[in-house]
Design a protein around this nucleic acid. Sequence first.
DNA 1: CCTATGGTTCAACTATTATCGAACTATGAT
DNA 2: ATCATAGTTCGATAATAGTTGAACCATAGG
Lengths: 103, 103
Amino acid sequence: MIESTKLPHPAREDIELTFVLFALSDEARLALVRQLSGGPLDMVDCSSLGANVPKSTRSHQVKVLREAGVITSELRGRNRQLTLRRSDLDARFPGLLEAVLGA
Amino acid sequence: MIESTKLPHPAREDIELTFVLFALSDEARLALVRQLSGGPLDMVDCSSLGANVPKSTRSHQVKVLREAGVITSELRGRNRQLTLRRSDLDARFPGLLEAVLGA
DNA sequence: CCTATGGTTCAACTATTATCGAACTATGAT
DNA sequence: ATCATAGTTCGATAATAGTTGAACCATAGG
């Protein structure tokens, strides 16, 4: 049995710039990050992921962002709460997130 | 006969964020951009592109950056001079380049 | 004009990434 | 316990991106 409840997240110091840039270089993922900039959201409430998109695809997009260190995905009740790792990103790449979100 | 002397560059207003982020999400291309942040360089002098890398590969990497609007590639004599489009990028996505280069 | 240099383009191949259905897992509610 | 909900994981396939050699193009210099 694998602990799928706790998904792996990179530590702050292990977040790599190229991975972050790649994760943000997709319209759908970028839209999700914009939505999360307003505060944490349950995955099911993330309209930016698309209504008629299969959940396996949504899960994959979220995974890319999570593995890059852009968001956290925590189990809360029956849902997964997604949170933008704002302080980690700001600490590691000052100004980057602001510039991306401001654009 | 195709005008390969003048390669297409997107206008400032046509530079898209996701394309820029994608172009920068590759280590080799990012290294080139870092090198160009010190000023324009002829392609042949861009050590960041790798010494034993075939020219077709170098040309391709440069093309991705050019088509994304990150650099210009101008024919100067027998060489191609690469220039970081700093003012265009700053105008379009304030703070982005600084954040990426500063990281 | 001829040649060398620096680079582009093309075509084929490889590798990575995206999409999606199906099966499975975890939690909450009845 | 059963069931519905929310999501992950797996495996297959499609789409996109990277690498490279060979052929071609443009300019500088003899």
